[in-house]
């Protein structure tokens, strides 16, 4: 008696489970949010103004932060393409003149973009803006580059994860994702670690994730028509501020050594530089 009752129960449970799965497949496409930062091109000559309190933006060429573009955005697109479904949204915190940089990300293949109309004054402020946008959007994967090449902070991804209450995998070099759980490899001191985590989660990416993609003409044309939503910032604090910039000390003149006399180099390294 108990047995048939149990079987019926089991049947209903499995039916419900299947139904839930079908429902989930129908409505729950994979959604990625990729945080992108606008940074000075690598070859920029860095100078400061206003008594060394501001970065001099004059004549600076801007690019999408390479970590955000090469690794996060391209890998997010690869996962979407492999699955044949889903969306990749890019988000940037910055003023209107960032839109040229945002369009570059759309040209590479992002589906749509969000610009939060504010100056990204510190890592926490920036993370708080992105968190306010992301919190009720149901993103499965939230991507950040490990660092931006301007302030080299390695911080926005971790702050964002905390503000969203999600797991965080930092400095990942590869990711595979089956729609509910992901296997990642991340850097640790002197090695790498392989781990698994359930979505939704936040990750930050490093070299190894993907190779650079160059936008083609079609991508560039399409990018002009893709949606770019501008939203207002929320109230958030700056936990830190930069009070002054400084140039690194001038490098002394290089000392050239005769290739026939490598003993001199050994001597200089031992007795002058004292590093051996």
């Amino acid at each position: 008696m108990g047995s048939s009752g149990f079987q019926l129960f089991e049947f209903l449970v499995s039916f419900g489970y299947c139904f839930a799965r079908i429902e989930r497949r129908k409505i729950d496409l994979m959604k990625s949010l990729v945080c992108i930062s606008k940074v000075p091109d690598t070859t920029t000559k860095v100078t400061f103004t206003d008594n060394n309190t501001k970065f001099n933006e004059e004549n600076v060429q801007y690019i999408v932060n390479p970590y955000d573009e090469w690794y996060s955005l391209v890998r997010a697109l690869e996962l979407k393409e492999a699955k044949g479904e889903g969306t990749v949204t890019v988000v940037n915190v910055g003023p209107a003149d960032n839109e040229q940089t945002i369009r570059k990300a759309l040209a590479i293949g992002a589906d749509d973009a969000v610009r939060i109309d504010a100056q990204p004054t510190d890592g926490y402020y920036t993370a708080a803006q992105i968190a306010a946008h992301a919190k009720d959007k149901g993103y499965d994967l939230v991507w950040a580059g490990s660092e931006s090449i301007d302030y080299n902070g390695f911080e926005v991804g971790g702050m964002l994860a905390e503000l969203l209450g999600l797991p965080y995998v930092q400095n990942a070099t590869s990711i595979d994702y089956d729609g509910s759980s992901a296997t990642l490899v991340r850097n640790i001191e002197g090695g790498q670690e392989t781990l698994s985590v359930h979505s939704p989660f936040v990750l930050s990416t490093q070299k190894g994730m993907a190779e650079a993609r160059i936008p083609n003409m079609r991508g560039i044309m399409q990018a002009k028509k893709k949606p770019l939503e501008v939203i207002s910032p929320v109230e958030a604090e700056n936990l830190t501020e930069i009070t002054k910039f400084e140039h690194p000390p001038e490098k002394g003149e290089v000392k050239m050594i005769d290739p026939e006399n490598v003993e001199e180099l050994v001597d200089l390294l031992q007795n002058e530089a004292k590093v051996l």
Partner: peptide, 9 residues
């Protein structure tokens, strides 16, 4: 290419 002095608020 530079250094910055960060004040913690």
């Amino acid at each position: 290419k530079g250094f910055a002095y960060y004040k913690i608020n």
